[in-house]
């Protein structure tokens, strides 16, 4: 199951675990990503609060936790190769995995079709 947020994050959910990253639309808007700070394993995330940082040449942006939970793993590959976020935003460029503490939060998120129309409606 893949879900999307209005803040341009995606989640691939398998049971009570989700992989989280930013969407292809988001990486296009950001431009060349030069630095990513992902959360450490064990960190407790609260939906809507800062979870990671992504910096392009031009600007720093915060990535908010789309759901509450405990971080299982941050994507270590992004520290050596932050441009992975540009090359493969919804694959190798994932940010972190999280064990959901409130799976019902997923109900408030968009599915792929919903996200596509959300992006199109904005632009």
């Amino acid at each position: 199951m893949k879900k999307y947020t209005k803040d341009h994050e995606w989640l691939r959910v398998d049971g009570d675990v989700a992989v989280v990253g930013i969407t292809d639309f988001a990486q296009q808007q950001l431009g060349d990503v030069v630095f990513v700070e992902v959360p450490e394993a064990g960190r407790v995330l609260e939906a809507g609060k800062e979870a990671a940082v992504v910096e392009s040449v031009k600007a720093a942006s915060e990535v908010f936790a789309p759901v509450s939970g405990v971080v299982i793993e941050g994507n270590a590959a992004l520290s050596d190769d932050p441009a992975l976020v540009n090359r493969d935003p919804e694959g190798e460029g994932w940010f972190f995995t999280v064990r959901l503490s409130a799976p019902a939060e997923l109900d408030g998120l968009m599915d792929e079709a919903g996200y596509q129309s959300f992006v199109e409606a904005q632009h």
């Binding site: 803040d7 994050e9 808007q29 942006s61 990535v63 632009h123």
Partner: peptide
């Protein structure tokens, strides 16, 4: 993501 994304107008 933050709302700080530059928007195309």
């Amino acid at each position: 993501m933050t709302t700080a994304l530059p928007q195309d107008s």
